[in-house]
Design a protein around this nucleic acid. Structure first.
Lengths: 227, 227
DNA sequence: CATCATCTTGATAATGCATTAATAACTGCC
DNA sequence: GGCAGTTATTAATGCATTATCAAGATGATG
C-alpha cells in the first residue's frame, strides 16, 4: 500500500529499467522521462510525489532542470549522478535538491533515502490528531471524523484539506493551492477550487453557508482556522 | 544572518572542534553534547533547529538516540558515521534521520546538506509579527488582529496597509501609494486613497477621528507610525 | 466492457468589493 | 471670520469574484 508516484528522469535505458523494477517492487508507481523537455512537461501534467533526477542529460544540464522544476515544484527531488566532486553536490543541493547520490548507488540505500524524503513531506503533522471543534483529522490514519462518524473524502478533497490544515491560520492563494494540489498547469483553474472547497464545506462545516473553518479571502485565496 | 541553532552530538573532541569552527563561521549558533545522556537533556531544554548526530557514542548506540529523539523531536537530524555499510545507512534513515554522511566527510558538502535540511522546515515558519500597540500584523498569515480579534480586511485594504507598515515612519506620497497599490494609471485618483485610508482607520484605530498610526501629511501623503 | 465514483465543465445565482459621487469637515492664509 | 484648497465621510451603484448545482467526461475496477 504505497501508491506514491515517482518520476525517473534519466537518458540511460538500463538505469531506468533497473529503477523501474526496483521501485515497482516497492509498490511505487513509476513515470519515466528520457530528457529534460519530456520531464518538464510530464511534471507539469502529472506532478509526481518525488523526482529522481539524473544530472547528465543529453538536451539540458540537470542543474537547469533542477532550477526550472524548483520554480514551482515543491516536492522532494533526489539527484543521481556519476559526478562525485564536492562542487557538483553543493551546487545541486543549493539549487533545491533534497538529496544527492553518487552512481553507482546501492538500491537499498536509495530506497531508504526515498522513504526519508517522502516522510518529510508530511513530517509536521504525522501522528497528530487535530481537533477543530467541529471535526477531527487523524493524519496518520488519513481519516476525518465529524463527531464519531467517519467522513468520506476523495483523494483530491483530502489533499486539499490537509494542505490547508498544515498551514492553519495562513492565507493560501488560489495559485498556490492549485499548484500544490493539481499541478502547475492548473494555476488559472480557480473554478476547481471553488467546487472542491464547496464540497469540503458541505462535508465538514456544521453550517456550510456560514463556514467557520474554511474561510474565503476574497480576491486572494482561502484560509483554514481551527477555532 | 543565520542564527539557526545546531546541536553537535559527538564524543570526539577534534570533530566537535572542527564542526564548531566551521558552523560558527557560517553564522550558526552551536550547542555541543559529548554523549547520549547529555544530548537528550540538551535537546529537551534547548531544542535546536537541527541535530548532527555521531552514530558511535560511548554510552548508547546512536540508533537508540535517534529513536528517543524522534519520539517527539521533529526537526532535521543528520547522522555522521564511519560506518559505510548499507544496512547502517538504511537503518538510520528508517529510524528518522534526514540524511547520512560517511566520515570523513567534506565540510562544504555537509554545509550544503545542512542548508538543504533547514530549507525544508524553515520555509514556512518565517512568521514576522508586527505590533503597533493597538493592533498586530502577521505578514506570513496575512492576518491583522486588534487585540485577539481578527480584523477583516479586503485585498486592497491589506495591500495598502502592508505597504505603509513596511515603510513605517516614512511619508509616502499620494502618487507613490496610488502607483504601488492601484498601478500607474491611477496616479491622480487621490480620492481612492482617502476612501481606503478612512476604512483602515475605522477598522484599526482606537479613535478613528484622532488617528495615531495612519497620519495625514497634508499636501504630501500619509505616514504610518507604530507607537 | 460495464459500472461506479470522481473529476471536469458550464451555466446561473449570490455575494462582496471597488468605484463613484455628493456632502461635510478640516487647514492654512489673508 | 471668511475663503480656497485639501481631506474625510458616507452610501448607492455596477462590476468582479465567489458559490452552487447538475450534466457530461473520464478513468479506475472487477
Amino acid at each position: 500500500m504505497n501508491s506514491a508516484v515517482i518520476l525517473i528522469i534519466d537518458d540511460e535505458v538500463q538505469i531506468r529499467k533497473l529503477l523501474t523494477i526496483t521501485l515497482t517492487s516497492y509498490d511505487y508507481k513509476v513515470l519515466e522521462a528520457v530528457n529534460a523537455k519530456e520531464a518538464l512537461t510530464l511534471v507539469a501534467n502529472h506532478p509526481p510525489d518525488l523526482v529522481l533526477l539524473d544530472i547528465g542529460l543529453p538536451d539540458m544540464s540537470g542543474h537547469q532542470v533542477l532550477r526550472h522544476l524548483r520554480e514551482w515544484y515543491s516536492k522532494p527531488i533526489i539527484v543521481l549522478s556519476v559526478q562525485s566532486a564536492e562542487e557538483d553536490i553543493v551546487q545541486a543541493l543549493d539549487h533545491g535538491a533534497n538529496d544527492y547520490l553518487i552512481k553507482p548507488f546501492r538500491t537499498g540505500e536509495l530506497m531508504a533515502r526515498i522513504r526519508s524524503a517522502l516522510r518529510q513531506t508530511n513530517a509536521e503533522t504525522t501522528g497528530v490528531v487535530l481537533d477543530t471543534g467541529d471535526f477531527t483529522i487523524d493524519f496518520a490514519a488519513r481519516l476525518v471524523k465529524k463527531g464519531n462518524v467517519p467522513v468520506k473524502l476523495t483523494a483530491t478533497e483530502y489533499t486539499l484539506l490537509a494542505l490547508m490544515v498544515r498551514n492553519e491560520g495562513k492565507v493560501l492563494t488560489h495559485q498556490y493551492l492549485l499548484n500544490e494540489v493539481w499541478g502547475p498547469s492548473y494555476r488559472n483553474e480557480s473554478q476547481y477550487l471553488r467546487v472542491f472547497v464547496a464540497q469540503l464545506r458541505k462535508k465538514l462545516e456544521s453550517d456550510p453557508n456560514r463556514p467557520k473553518h474554511i474561510v474565503t479571502e476574497s480576491g486572494v485565496g482561502y484560509r483554514f482556522v481551527t477555532a
